[in-house]
Simulated assay, not measured.
Amino acid sequence: MVKIPKSHPRYWSLYYREKIIEGMEKGMTAKAGLIAHGRGEAFDYLIGETTIEPAEKALKAAVAKLLLAEYPVISVNGNVAALVPKETIELAKALNAKLEINLFYRTEDRVKTIAEELRKHDPNVELLGINPTKRIPNLESERGKVDENGIWKADVVVVPLEDGDRTEALVAMGKFIITIDLNPLSRSARMADITIVDNIVRAYPRMIELAKEMKKLPKEELEKIVKEYNNGQILNEVLLHINSRLEKLSKEGVWRKKELST
């Protein structure tokens, strides 16, 4: 991976961009994953590259639902494995959830490479989706292949950095779907039951924190958090945040005149 000086003003953005490139070079991330990451970066700029209040509400509702779930499963694709492999495993442990590798551009080599990457952080981690035997109805892509002991059986599924067609198909199956998507206008964001409009590198660590805190809450309080959550309202709040921020920036001005040295 290219070494980026920590003094660079865009250090973290460039660091995670290089992680995606490294993931492609290893064989984990598909070429289309680079495009998806760039699109996400653009929306992260719009929200201000921070976890905004609507995202925090969604994060709490998501963790509450996962803690209440009978059989939660977290889906893993190439971008997730490249960006947050350690955090993905920690989150699954904190929520007592299963992990399943699921890919749109599925090859056995990619599945094997992703599994190897995750096992670097925990050699004993249980990974489903290696040999899927079930298929999501009305989903013809490779992403339709799922593990009968994973997504097929799950009541709640986390599908981060997701394609809209699978989100829609899983909802049609009766699954409760949680997605992490920086684009509030995507089909995944609009189809999911809970949409966390945040960068996954911020969202997963925060979810781990919340899981540890909220495990202590009574079931009734967790149920209240989920019941009071409204995904449509949250997406509206995200759009209002972006609009307000752009209006503010347009008034303040974004161009800084560079003084010429004499």
Rank of each mutant, 00 (worst) to 15 (best):
S186W: 03
V158F: 10
I196K: 00
P160T: 12
G164M: 06
D193V: 00
F176S: 00
I196C: 07
D165M: 11
I178T: 09
E162L: 02
I178E: 02
L170H: 01
L185V: 11
E168N: 06
S186N: 11
R190F: 05
G144E: 06
I178N: 03
P137I: 07
I194W: 00
P160W: 05
A189P: 02
D198H: 08
R166L: 14
R190D: 09
I151E: 05
A169L: 05
A189C: 13
I200R: 01
K175N: 03
E140C: 02
N138Y: 14
S141Q: 10
D165Y: 11
P184S: 07
V159F: 04
V157N: 03
I136S: 04
I136T: 13
L185S: 11
G164E: 06
V171D: 01
D181C: 09
R135Y: 12
I136Y: 06
S188Q: 09
L161R: 05
D181H: 03
P132Y: 11
R187C: 03
K134Y: 14
T133P: 13
P137E: 12
T133F: 08
I194A: 02
R166Y: 09
T179F: 03
P132A: 12
V157C: 10
N138D: 14
P160F: 07
V171A: 09
I196Y: 02
K153M: 14
F176H: 00
D198T: 08
A169N: 07
S186K: 07
L185H: 14
D155W: 11
A192N: 04
D147P: 04
K153C: 07
L185I: 10
P132G: 11
P184L: 06
K145I: 06
N131Y: 13
A189V: 08
V159P: 02
K134Q: 15
A154E: 04
A154G: 10
